[in-house]
Amino acid sequence: MTRRVRIVAALALAGVATACARESGVVHHRLEIADLVFRPEEAVVAPGDTVTWINRDLVPHTVTAADESGDSGALTGAAPFSCVAQPGDSVRYVCRYHPTMSGVLVVAAR
């Protein structure tokens, strides 16, 4: 897998992102983690969009690139994690704590 999406902490985005809210052409996508599942398991976003994961479970999770090139650190319900999608290919991500969990972020031009 070619990784071209950078998963980076963007704390300034936390709390302002809403589910697919559009601002000046940029879409804020809100993904959830619940019942040990990334929801949706596959999300399609455009370059420049922001993606925020919110953990609804009782236990911590991570959003970690499968190739280990990026990691959110432990996510709890009080601390969402956001990143900005960069132009390029898809990235598969997992939870480091729960290896049965995985998701895919597909970056494609609108």
Partner: peptide, 16 residues
């Protein structure tokens, strides 16, 4: 219910 969803994940993890 929420705890059970976590523990079922543990069960899948344990199978692996």
């Amino acid at each position: 219910r929420q705890a059970l969803s976590i523990f079922r994940g543990h069960e899948r993890h344990a199978e692996r």
